[in-house]
Design a protein around this nucleic acid. Structure first.
Lengths: 176, 176, 176, 176
DNA sequence: CATGAATGAGCGTTCATTCAT
DNA sequence: TATGAATGAACGCTCATTCAT
């Protein structure tokens, strides 16, 4: 792929993220193209339809998250610390956006696989944190996953906002 | 207003709630009309545009919430119990929907006033719960409001789901 | 017909004239009804459709014009004076409106007959004026009719405005 | 702009003139598009709404008129001859149409300017014709302008029809 | 490969007309 | 008889997508 084609693709994603976030999931495709300084045709060459573009954004975030989660395992001492790191990192990703975009659009193979990978990685940290006694153990894995993903996919989530703090306080150790 | 017109109006709102919730804020107006077994014209006679319909739904939920909050104050012994009751009641209202709908649409007088009423009522419970020592006091009022509204406006929020439980555990008494 | 029904009918025509004139031939029927302080149903009881209402207005003006033209013949000494009187009277009728309304709508029996009556009366004055030597005779009857009707059906026509004056100067006696 | 796009634009205007003239200012936009052998979308790409299309037509006529009036000044010997030439030329322009279209639609900057230009050019010829003694001088400039524009913006105006002839006879020299 | 013109299905909305109340 | 609620066809306009240049 030619260097400028790569640059174009990146420009598109970049501006799409900005516009989707700022103006909702219905921004006209041609505004995205305009913002990226390209013709619509070029946009459609890179992404065959709106779905593809949306998913590119979602996939990017999920890939990034998966990478980070793998790295965290090596960097951090405890599973709890991993969890904190992951939550912190999530705030830097357009997860709320990714969620709203992928919710709208029907699933496919790759999508399912990537989401599954992320789920597994999270499940892994959760289980280990519960085993090491830092994460309360009275919550079923499935529910813990949903809970964390809800927290982390809020629009405007920050790693140190009150909701996150309170939730972590509620999650630490256990209800006793 | 004629009896059947009232019934029609109710049918419209009812089906609109269902469809907005199930298919997002962009459901075609004519599908809403169809679902209610009416012509589009009838829908538009009752609600001059999509905004009006959306706001009817949002306003309905907020009014209900405000009524309930006032009632809770008389029924419950402690502010904490009030809070639990309110959160429980919220799960019966289409608040996530209301939020997503009103976010889309520009503000107006009544809207602002109603939202302000709800805010005040919530602020009131929060402050009293902090005073009585059941709600942790290290969270500024404003932030507590945002936090609660985030919890309660989640799509699919339930008064007894894990997220709510954990959050309440995190909120009770304090961080110490 | 009951007295109030007559009053209603008159009110409708009256307000229809005002609204057609002020807001063009597309004013919604229900605005006309509103303006007359009646329900649409009542309007439709009196006039089966928009055409009927439009034609009522046109017919009213034409009838009035025909009556006046007949009267003028008795009151005035010369055909030229009749012509002046008729033109003067036309300015008091909503002729421009009538024209724009009847232009839009397909012809019918009565309509044709009434228009024919008016045409005949005008033709009569024209011919007599040409005979008596006050109206230039180098204009074919048909053309003179069209010319006069154009002058007289202008929106905002006045019997003493410059266009009328100049035209009458051009018409008097002849080109020689 | 691509060559075929230019052609399309011209085709649109051309058919719009025909249809507006034949069927009034409310012809459905999609009929205009159909007549031009194009999709509605194409029509709307060239003219963002009905107003824009209407104004294109009006502006075209006014521009043409202004150009012609300037040229006439050089070509003709007397102001009266200029006037005749201008009136003759007007009959080739869709002025009645332009008038009916621009009446419907609110003013803007360019529109006002263009109309002002035309007014000035006409005023100029009128004043000079009155000075040279060929145009009767007992009509105020403003009124002469209105009078001429009424004559010339009639639907179906012809430079040699009786109304024009009579009016010119009425205007020549003076009332004496 | 990039462009942006063309397409047309689809949605929001209006309004003439009908008819239950 | 008067009313105004209901209807739905029709129109203006948008935008995803295609494809000629």
């Amino acid at each position: 792929m030619r260097a400028d084609a790569v640059r174009n693709r990146e420009r598109i994603v970049e501006h799409a993220v900005r516009l989707f976030a700022g103006r909702g999931p219905d921004v006209p495709m041609c505004e995205i193209a305009d913002a990226a300084g390209l013709g619509v045709g070029t946009l459609y060459r890179h992404f065959p339809d709106r779905r593809a573009l949306a998913w590119e954004i979602g996939a990017g975030a999920l890939r990034d998250l998966a990478d980070f989660a793998r790295g965290a395992r090596e960097r951090e001492e405890t599973a709890w610390a991993e969890l904190l790191a992951i939550i912190g990192h999530c705030a830097t990703l357009p997860l709320a956006l990714a969620k709203s975009l992928t919710e709208l659009l029907p699933e496919d193979e790759t999508q399912a696989e990537l989401e599954h990978t992320v789920d597994s990685l999270l499940a892994d940290v959760i289980v280990r944190a519960q085993r090491e006694g830092t994460l309360r153990a009275d919550i079923p894995l499935r529910e813990a996953q949903r809970l964390l993903s809800t927290i982390v996919c809020r629009p405007g989530a920050r790693p140190d906002d009150y909701l996150t703090i309170v939730m972590l306080d509620g999650l630490r150790r256990g209800p006793g």
